[in-house]
Design a protein around this nucleic acid. Structure first.
Length: 820
RNA sequence: GCGAAAGUGGCGGAACUGGUAUACGCGCUAGACUUAGGAUCUAGUCCCGAGAGAUCGGGUUGGGGGUUCGAAUCCCCCCUUUCGCACCA
């Protein structure tokens, strides 16, 4: 659509293309370490090369770029790199579906998206680009694996793991989402499989990961992480079966130990078989069989009726020597704690429901303050409130606040158990039965077991000639020759690990590869590390709170302990952008037909308008619905700016001292707002402030054009616009007669004197209602303000015939008169 | 069920530590320029009532209560929406 008819009108297409070419040729955005300036590492979560840049990518990247540009103008040496998270399933699915090699598909997408990113006009330093499927990259992904392996942080074990039947691979616990436990990628319900898989010991860092005191991250993310890690304080207590086997449990309520009336094991618990008596065996085995076959969805439904079977066996409660029956039930999970619980139906609602369903005794041992102890048989629900311990042997009478300490000490003194902490966090399962990922650099030798591939032999290259049949086995396993190799230790015949690594492993360290993507002596050049790390500002979607953002923190801490990196945290400040919804306020999706295509917008309005609108239309951290009418307003604004600089003016007006003062005041007040708002990610009000200033400049032009204040205004306006609309600002800057790029200019300083108000509008309230306003000079004393307020017509009118009881003066703002 | 965030004009959204609610933009209304306008410019635009009118009065930040000279903002109760977790012992 034709947008403009005047030949000199704002034509973003030509302006933007011209400057992008020039900046590229001048190397304007190359960032070099510079000890003379404070550094700032701005990072946005790297995109997956899915094919086309969508508006969500723009929303993540363009505002981050604007802020990076702002910081650069403020004197920071800013690093803003970009790359691609290029391993992963979609490439393989495309291969299966369309018979294109994943490598080809991925690299073609990268080329395409790189071009689209360049059109965005960012200050990305492309020499720092890193692509995770590049052997020069995954060589070091594998190297990191070996370091973790050598450090005892990577291990292989057989375990019941989550398997996505659609993706044909295992998943980490974090990648199974929602109340129906579906695959994070494809929404297919996962199933359980017993497999030998590689894990990273994230749990070793559980405690440290909970500490977020050193980082400026959103409360929301910190809460999500801490709930995910799930720290529980309690005690490990060792019961014994009648056969003498120790039966360890974890409880957060050691104060209820005397109320135990039964125990429950997870059906998969190793002691089940030994505990089961001959007459119960058939029933127990049937139950175990049934629960193993059930999906987790059925098993974990919270409102499900309690089911379970008595094993026929008993265990002895160490604190009172009582025999208690041992049951199995699927409400106890093998994967948490010890897979066994002591059941205290009187004080735990789940145990209560179970006890009532199977007629087991309920024995209260905690008496709430000021109440009488109910009879177990008459209770209708578990008593979970705090209270005093009763019927609890030597600890009877202990109040709630002292119970944890006293019971803990008692258990330890008698050798019954100890205070302990349990986490919900599990170790990170990183094996994937897929082709398009970094091969795990391990060789299995019949003689020496799992042997690390020597570092000199890295990378373990992914072979190109494979078949992508979704068999449930890694395609590498079916390769005729790739898996066959020799043992690095003994030289005998051996086989390669055929699983590849979770792509979250690749993205756990990409911020390090950006520092020196060509470096081949290590994953990164240490001097670059010293110059740039840690990341100062990290931006991305909140959906990674319990995945990538936990993994990368774990990874950094593990590498710190291995002596590879320094510092406790990789990213100091994190901010999350919101989500752009379709015009119908629904989530954008192809099936809804409400997808906004950034390429088409750029064709129509130019990059600068799209960037500015993304900053303007909503609070960035919140997001909101797209509006194709709304962007017109931003487009109009930039055209008005263009006109003000480029079109001749009617200069019939006369510059009055008043007009000069007024414009300078607005100019510097705007600068103050824009500076503060950029700093704090308030991009929408940044743009609003600039629009306001333009609204004042346009009518002032006929009076002030040609005066020094007008020159100052045009100079400052172009600079303030530069981070938002970099091409337009550059064009205006050169039109002002400058030769060097505006993006090499410094951010202006606020002239506080000019920004100061000379007079204020004093609000006069009577009994809480605004009754008048009066303009007074700044700096009057309270008494003078009071006098001025009382003298107003509004104040007189509304206090007539009344006594003035009180006058509250808020200097610079208002006077509140209380009368009656 | 537990936890977190949020509810402000017709719409997207502003409002510093409690101090002029509705900035900025969209849309809408009227006018100007124009062959034309889905371009541009000018003026107006929270709601109700009174007035020919400039104006005047009242009300308003999901609902109800409270603290205060003063509440979108602080406290209590309730409603709605979104997100996260969900038999975690």
């Amino acid at each position: 659509m034709e947008r403009d008819k005047t030949p000199r009108g704002y034509d973003p297409a030509s302006v933007e293309a011209r400057w992008q070419e020039r900046w590229e040729a001048d190397g304007l955005y190359r960032s070099e370490a510079d000890p003379g300036r404070p550094k700032h590492y701005t990072l946005t979560m790297l995109p997956y090369p899915s094919g086309d840049l969508h508006i969500g990518h723009w929303y993540a990247i363009a505002p981050a770029d604007a802020r990076a540009r702002f910081l650069r103008m403020r004197g920071y040496n800013v690093l803003f790199p970009m790359g691609f998270d290029a391993f992963g399933l979609p490439a393989e699915n495309a291969a299966i579906k369309r018979n294109i090699h994943p490598k080809e598909w991925t690299w073609a997408n990268i080329d395409r998206m790189r071009g689209q990113l360049r059109r965005m006009g960012t200050m990305i330093d492309w020499r720092r680009e890193a692509v995770s499927c590049d052997p020069a990259y995954y060589r070091w992904t594998q190297w990191f694996f070996l370091q973790l392996f050598a450090g005892g942080l990577a291990y292989r074990k057989k375990a019941a793991v989550d398997w996505c039947p659609s993706c044909n691979t295992t998943l980490a616990r974090e990648q199974v989402v929602g109340d129906d436990r579906v695959c994070e990628r494809c929404d297919t319900p996962v199933i359980r499989k017993e497999l030998s898989q590689w894990f990273f010991r994230t749990t070793r860092y559980a405690e440290e990961l909970l500490d977020t005191s050193g980082i400026d991250w959103p409360e929301r993310v910190r809460t999500l992480q801490s709930r995910w890690i799930g720290r529980s304080e309690g005690a490990q207590v060792v019961f014994h079966t009648e056969a003498g086997d120790p039966l360890e449990i974890f409880t957060t309520r050691p104060d209820t130990l005397w109320g135990v009336t039964f125990m429950v094991l997870a059906p998969e618990h190793p002691l089940v078989a030994r505990l089961t008596t001959a007459d119960r065996r058939a029933e127990v085995e049937a139950y175990v069989e049934r629960s193993v076959r059930q999906t987790d969805i059925q098993r974990e439904a919270a409102d499900k009726e309690k089911t379970g079977v008595w094993t026929g066996g008993y265990a002895v409660n160490p604190v009172n020597g009582e025999r208690v029956p041992v049951w199995i039930a699927d409400y106890v999970l093998m994967s948490y704690g010890t897979g066994a619980i002591m059941a205290v139906p009187a004080h735990d609602s789940r145990d209560f429901a179970f006890a009532r369903a199977f007629g087991i005794e309920v024995r209260p041992v905690i008496c709430p303050e000021g109440e009488t102890l109910p009879a177990g048989a008459e209770m209708t629900e578990a008593l979970t409130a705090d209270g005093v311990m009763v019927h609890s042997g030597p600890l009877t009478g202990t109040p709630a606040d002292a119970a944890y300490e006293k019971v803990g000490a008692y258990l330890e003194a008698n050798g019954f158990g100890e205070r302990s902490v349990t986490f919900r966090l599990r170790d990170w399962l990183i094996s994937r039965q897929r082709y398009w990922g970094a091969p795990i650099p391990i060789v299995f030798c019949p003689e020496h077991g799992a042997v690390a591939v020597p570092e000199d032999d890295l990378p373990v290259l992914l072979p190109d000639d494979v078949e992508w049949r979704p068999t449930g086995e890694s395609p590498l396993k079916l390769h005729p020759s790739w898996r066959l190799t020799t043992c690095p230790t003994c030289g005998g015949p051996a086989e390669r690990e055929t699983d590849t690594m979770d792509t979250f492993m690749c993205s756990s360290w990409y911020h390090l590869r950006y520092l020196s993507p060509q470096y081949d002596q290590g994953p990164f050049d240490p001097s670059e590390y010293r110059a740039w790390m840690p990341v100062d500002t990290y931006t991305g979607g909140v959906e990674h709170a319990t995945m990538h953002l936990i993994y990368t923190r774990f990874f950094h801490k593990a590498c710190r302990d291995l002596g590879i990196v320094q510092g406790d945290e990789p990213m100091l400040q994190l901010r999350n952008q919101g989500i752009i919804l379709g015009e119908d306020s629904e989530k954008m999706s192809k099936s809804r037909g409400n997808v906004v295509a950034p390429d088409a917008l750029v064709d129509r309005y130019g990059t600068d308008t799209v960037r500015a609108y993304l900053l303007f239309f909503a609070r960035w951290e919140q997001g909101g619905p797209w509006s194709s009418q709304g962007i017109e307003g931003t487009w109009r604004w930039l055209r008005r700016v263009w006109t003000l600089y480029m079109e001749p003016a009617d200069t019939t007006g006369e510059a009055t001292p008043d007009a000069v003062t007024k414009l300078r005041r607005k100019l510097h007040q705007t600068l103050r707002r824009v500076t503060a708002d950029f700093e704090s990610f308030q991009f929408n009000t940044t743009v609003a402030a600039l629009m306001e200033l333009m609204n004042e400049m346009v009518p002032a032009r006929s009076q002030l054009e040609g005066t020094p204040v007008w020159a100052e205004a045009k100079d400052l306006y172009a600079r303030m616009l530069a981070p938002i609309a970099p091409h337009l600002a550059e064009e205006l800057w050169h039109a002002l007669g400058h030769e060097t790029s505006i993006h090499r200019q410094s951010w202006p300083t606020v002239d506080e004197e000019a920004a100061a108000n000379e007079e204020i509008t004093l609000v006069v309230q009577v009994n809480g209602k605004v009754r008048d306003r009066v303009t007074v000079p700044v700096g009057l004393g309270d008494d003078q303000l009071k006098e001025a307020a009382l003298a107003t017509e509004g104040a007189r009118k509304f206090t007539e015939g009344m006594t003035i009881r009180k006058v509250v003066v808020v200097p610079g703002r208002l006077v509140s008169i209380v009368a009656g």
